[in-house]
Amino acid sequence: MIALEQAQKMIDVALETGASAGWKPLSAVVLDGGGHVLAFARADGAAPGRFEIARAKAYGAVMLGMGGKAQMARAEAQGYFMAAVNGIYGGQTCPVPGGVLIRDNDGLVIGAMGVTGDTSENDAEAALAGIAAAGLTGES
């Protein structure tokens, strides 16, 4: 289980990671193991539509049990499969880096974090920093 305090810490650190690096304004969401939103924040200047992108990145990760990098590789190798999965989930997934699985100390998936706003690789880096700061393990 991810505590609200941990979710907020992940988001704060992810947004600060982007700001410190001079990246474009980030938005970040943390979902629980069932794909439900625990916390969200959008940095000043971030586009208002970023919530849905961040949520879709995280939702795909938690529902498929694979991070955004793995999803993107799967989409490149088997585009028809990932298109079908996106249809199954009502268009709610975004198979690119920035959707990061959250694992507990036993290695169990307990949620996912989605970050968006800069390059997908930078988004994933910010998510991993936030997850680590909360004492958990990220898998991008």
Rank of each mutant, 00 (worst) to 15 (best):
Q71D: 05
N86F: 01
L64D: 02
L108S: 09
G65P: 13
G90M: 03
I110L: 04
G99S: 04
N105A: 15
V96G: 04
A73R: 14
Y59D: 08
M63K: 15
D106M: 10
I102T: 11
F81Q: 07
A58S: 06
G60R: 05
G111M: 04
G68K: 11
Y80K: 12
K69Q: 06
A54P: 08
G114C: 05
L64G: 10
A54T: 15
Y59Q: 06
M66K: 08
A112Q: 08
I102C: 11
L64Y: 08
V62I: 13
V96K: 06
G91F: 10
C94Q: 10
A75Y: 07
A75S: 15
Q78P: 00
G60W: 12
K69T: 13
V100E: 01
P95M: 10
M66T: 03
L101W: 05
R103Y: 06
G99M: 06
A112T: 09
A83V: 07
A56W: 00
T93E: 02
L64V: 08
L108H: 10
P95T: 07
E76L: 12
D106L: 14
R55F: 15
R55K: 15
A75I: 00
A84D: 00
G98M: 05
G91E: 07
L101H: 09
M82Q: 01
Y89I: 00
L64N: 09
A54I: 04
D104A: 12
A58T: 12
V100H: 02
I110T: 12
V62Q: 05
A77E: 14
A58W: 09
G107H: 08
M66L: 06
Y80F: 14
G107I: 08
K57L: 13
K69L: 04
P97Q: 12
M113H: 02
L64Q: 10
P97C: 10
R74N: 06
G91K: 06
A56I: 02
R55E: 15
A73F: 04
I88T: 14
G87N: 13
Y80S: 14
G107P: 12
V100P: 05
Q92T: 13
G99Q: 09
R103W: 04
V62A: 12
N105P: 03
R55Q: 14
M72Q: 15
A61G: 13
T93Y: 01
A84I: 01
A61H: 04
L101K: 08
G90S: 13
I102S: 08
L64K: 11
A73S: 12
A75N: 12
M66A: 09
V96S: 05
Y59C: 11
A75G: 02
A77C: 00
G99V: 05
M82T: 00
G99W: 02
L108C: 02
C94H: 12
V85R: 01
Y89R: 01
M113I: 14
A70E: 02
Q92H: 11
G114T: 08
Q78C: 06
G114H: 03
V62R: 07
I102Q: 06
L101N: 07
A54D: 02
G87H: 07
Y80V: 13
V62M: 07
R55S: 09
G107F: 12
G87P: 03
